[in-house]
Amino acid sequence: MKRHLYETLACLALAAFLYPPPAYAMHIMEGFLPLKWCVFWYAVTFPFLVLGIVSIRRRVQGDPRLKMLLGLAGAFTFVLSALKLPSVTGSCSHPTGLGLGAVLFGPAVMSVLGTIVLVFQALLLAHGGLSTLGANAFSMAVVGPFVAYGVYRGLLGLRLPAAVAVFAGAALGDFLTYVTTSLQLALAFPQDGSILAPLAKFMGIFAVTQVPLAVSEGLLTVVVFNLLAKYSRSELETLSALPREVKANARGT
């Protein structure tokens, strides 16, 4: 009975992805990337999705507690990508929310969840697009989570507090997602054989807008992470998502 409840909720969380994220999703628009680049980014992203599906099976299967936590990671992405926030450039963008899940489950798992979000954005809200899905999935669902995870693990290795590592991971993952978007557009639209001028232009639009949002995403991710570290410690330990000292402390108390 209880198990059924978990499973139902995990399904609900996934169903939540079925609702489309908002209009001002900052992804490359349908038809705005030449065909050869569309194919190229699909090819680059594909292996990460395979890796992610394998990774979800290995980490979550058979453990309803972790299924529910995966649902939380998905739901968090869902909320954050719904928050279109104003920025200092006078335009709006939104955070991605993928850093939390990347820190908890590893980056490949979030490649899958992020791509699911993008598919429904493309289908139901005319955001991003099916032709540009590979490129958008690469920036948001591959670069973002891998940066977040790498920074988090790296900073933990330097013995920095988990909260600092989570903040830096989530914020940089968010920021570099949009740097990647700028780079993808610049590669597709070089000017006089050089990508530098268009890169500066697209960075001015996407990356600069994203700076305060990335800080907000970092902070919000730490808020939820703190609560999980307090109330969901056993799940986090199962996933070895916490630094070792923290684990030792938890056992001591």
């Binding site: 999703a25 006078g90 335009s91 963008s93 639009i205």
Partner: peptide, 16 residues
Amino acid sequence: EFGGADGRAEEAISEV
């Protein structure tokens, strides 16, 4: 205006 950054990217593409 606080419009979407993707709208501005469309403009930038048509400039480039």
